[in-house]
Design a protein around this nucleic acid. Structure first.
Lengths: 341, 341
DNA sequence: CTGTTAGCGCGTTCAC
DNA sequence: GTGAACGCGCTAACAG
């Protein structure tokens, strides 16, 4: 029978075990040897009292909390899920723990949360696609090891782990080209956001590399969201220019595009081929299952975690092992019959 | 220019301002009046040193951390998103903050995370659909105010805020009945899980209420996941019994069902009508947009938060205001032509 | 109103 | 190996 109350302290454990608090502390942290008789006494004492170390006190005493804060946008988005898993995994293997807070795509809130994390004295911070200004990141990175995952900070203090959006976009377009498509439209993401701009650039340069002139009338903004995808697809279709393929800057806008086509009675890939980006879990189950560019989110999360830990421990973060982008080919793309177009 | 270092303490602020630490502390917490000259001195001192209170030390001193821990399953799932937002909102209005950790649907991990939260001395805990045994919840609820959102604990100590899965299921089936359907299949969730069982019960009793005999051959397990939905739908179809409508225990399995039909060239709702449960954000964009049962997740999250705060402050949690379930009718359901079936 | 003195629970010297 | 004493940064009595 364990005794109740959550306010059992190390001191009580020590008293019951007939030893000093230092001994208990040492035994718990495993830093020193402790005679086996005392070990036993302490063990049973801990069990009887149902003792749980007070992490707050420990944190204050050691000046380290063994936890890293993760600032995400929407704490629940399938996009972030994989990355967070990677972060948790890697952290756990280093005996650190992650706590999550969310910024809700709002700069002000984001900074608040970041400050709160720092106030909690987390040992490090991982910014999962932050929207923060470089200057702000830089300022706060003075106080705590910080890595930015999925972005590129100008600050020397923050360790950036970017995604290669440019190459991913090129892969997608190139796949269309290989299938014989030449009239390829693009549903872009939010202008001004680095990742969105890079994907657009990839689209343009892949076209160029294939000797296909860039035509801005074949580009419409989808803002990375489903409704935007619907609108963009309608815009594209209404402009009346022919195209046989569409590359959407992310899967969500691709879903929207599919819905727009569905409403018009058009079929993917028979009428138009479609490729998305991010390879969300759902993309295996859309109608039809969507061809998409997959980023090794989990691995990237792991790397981010390893990087903070390295930073925390005063080492320099390992060189990023270039994670491989992958085009997951499903059923939304189809070769263009020779001679058509 | 603010000075660097994150190790600025209250004491340094006090010294620079020429006052005692208590005065600074009091000014910061606003518990006592402080002369306006000192206020100014402290303010400028804080600014110059770029002081941030050490929340760890504060937590130790006060015995309260002003934070509640939220244990979720998949930290990033659209299902939990709304609920978490509600939790954050309500908590913020009470000056508490939320930190999230995830149990990954794994009992062992779940308990670990819970212990970690308690070790961090959070003032309260919200279990967002926990898988924990009643006994374990009960044990830990001794030490900290605990509310279970989306479940029903046998423990008197934990404040349960259940969802009304039963009624939701009845709503769905009843809608089918009103549309003239009588051969209604069901894709069930994981057997043994309370919510899944309740949805099944709702399905059965709604049938009964409509004078339709329950036929277990019209039920197949989808396990709440897409792949399960595919399998279940195939099973149902392969059994050869006629049915004109399918109620899936959640949206994910409904998506799977749609894919299975798509593969067979069947159309929703022309060949078969379909209703899901949870009304995930994506359901507005599936092909066709899915009719689904929506739970007021955000409101429930708010209630959970208000309940923990009440518990923490020694009040008794307000009586749950019965949140309304809603059937969101989209395009996956269709009336059966009179005389058919 | 404000300074002084004690802790909060734990890790960590420093002696033995 | 082990205990005593001190300190982490802050709040909370206790006296003015």
């Amino acid at each position: 029978m364990s005794i109740e109350s959550n306010t059992v302290t190390l001191e009580e454990v020590a008293r019951l075990a007939g030893v000093s608090t230092s001994t208990v502390s040492r035994y718990l942290s495993g830093t020193h040897q402790v005679s086996s008789e005392k070990k036993a006494a302490i063990d049973s004492s801990i069990k009887r009292l149902n003792y749980r170390p007070n992490l707050v006190a420990r944190g204050l005493a050691k000046g380290r909390t063994m936890t890293v804060g993760v600032l995400t946008q929407e704490i629940a988005s399938s996009f972030f899920n994989e990355a967070m898993r990677g972060v948790e995994d890697a952290l756990a293997s280093h005996n650190y723990e992650a706590i999550f807070v969310s910024g809700h795509w709002n700069k002000v809130e984001e900074e608040q949360r970041l400050l709160s994390l720092i106030g909690r004295r987390v040992d490090g911070v991982i910014l999962l696609v932050a929207d923060l200004d470089d200057e702000i990141m830089d300022r706060h990175a003075q106080g705590v090891p910080m890595v930015l995952l999925g972005g590129q900070s100008a600050s020397m203090r923050v360790h950036s782990l970017g995604f290669d959006h440019y190459s991913g976009a090129r892969m997608a377009v190139q796949h269309f080209v290989e299938l014989g498509h030449r009239r390829i439209a693009f549903i872009s993401g939010p202008q001004g956001r680095h990742d969105a701009d890079e994907r657009l650039r990839g689209y343009r340069e892949a076209l160029e590399a294939a000797g296909i002139p860039y035509d801005e009338r074949l580009v419409a903004n989808g803002g990375y969201v489903e409704t935007g995808g619907v609108t963009a697809m309608n815009t594209l279709l209404d402009r009346g220019l022919p195209f046989s393929a569409v590359f959407a800057a992310n899967d969500d806008s691709a879903y929207g595009a599919m819905l727009a086509m569905y409403r018009r009675g058009m079929r993917v890939p028979d009428d138009i081929s479609l490729i998305g980006y991010d390879d969300l879990p759902h993309s295996s189950f859309s109608l039809p299952p969507l061809t998409s560019v997959r980023q090794p989110l989990r691995d990237l999360g792991r790397e981010a975690a390893s990087a903070v830990v390295a930073l925390i421990e005063g080492r320099k973060p390992p060189r990023a092992t270039v994670a491989m982008l992958e085009l997951i080919v499903r059923e939304s793309t189809k070769a263009l019959p020779v001679g058509s177009n």
